[in-house]
Amino acid sequence: MNKFLTLLIVSFGMILVSACGDSRIHSHAVYMLVDTSGTYAQEMNKASKIVNYLLATLNPGDSLAVAKVETRSFTEKDIIAKVTFDKRPSQATSQKRRFKNNIEVFAKQVKGSAYTDITGGLIQGAEYLNETKAGIKTIVVFSDMQQELGKGTIRDFPIRLDGIRIVALNVTKLGTDNADPRRYLDRLAQWEASVRKAGATDWVVVNDLENNIESILATR
């Protein structure tokens, strides 16, 4: 009888231990690309609000990084702030406060860039997200999605965005889009096709930030 009880306890313990999977699978990692080119640099207030929304929504154990889209964005130097929140809620709250302050400081000093390398930012974001080993990975692109590459910048090769959601935010219409709306629609369709081809799980466009901001992290 005692032997049976011991076996029962040991087997229960083993089941419990085997059930304890990698906690990262349940975590969420978000990489936000902020377009700072041309007139879009003036939209930083909106970008700050979105960062605040992400900070309010993400939980302990989740990761968040905010990077700017520059002339060449495939570099860690463009990451403004990044954090993986502590498992303890109190520590996570402190980290969120510090993160908010960093973003506020950046928003005050932002300078417009000459070109817009969104693809480079996406590759950098995918690298960061894959490193976090999070269960849900999202790249948020705060841009008009008009890519302009500088001389010598090569981005016309297949990229890998396996298992990553891409959310395009605040995709503003350009002056030329107003003249010919097909340009805007084609631009979005082209981006959707390219990210889906790269293996992205989802492509979401959110322009109504007042009412539809929840769509950024809808898969949680």
């Binding site: 304890c20 699978i25 349940h26 302990p60 154990g61 498992k87 303890r88 809620p89």
Partner: peptide
């Protein structure tokens, strides 16, 4: 339940939907 997450971590899971 909430303060226990401060002691054992808020992001640890035993099963897919069961938090430690």
């Amino acid at each position: 339940a909430l303060p226990m997450s401060e002691m054992v971590g808020a992001s640890d899971y035993i099963t897919n939907s069961l938090k430690t």
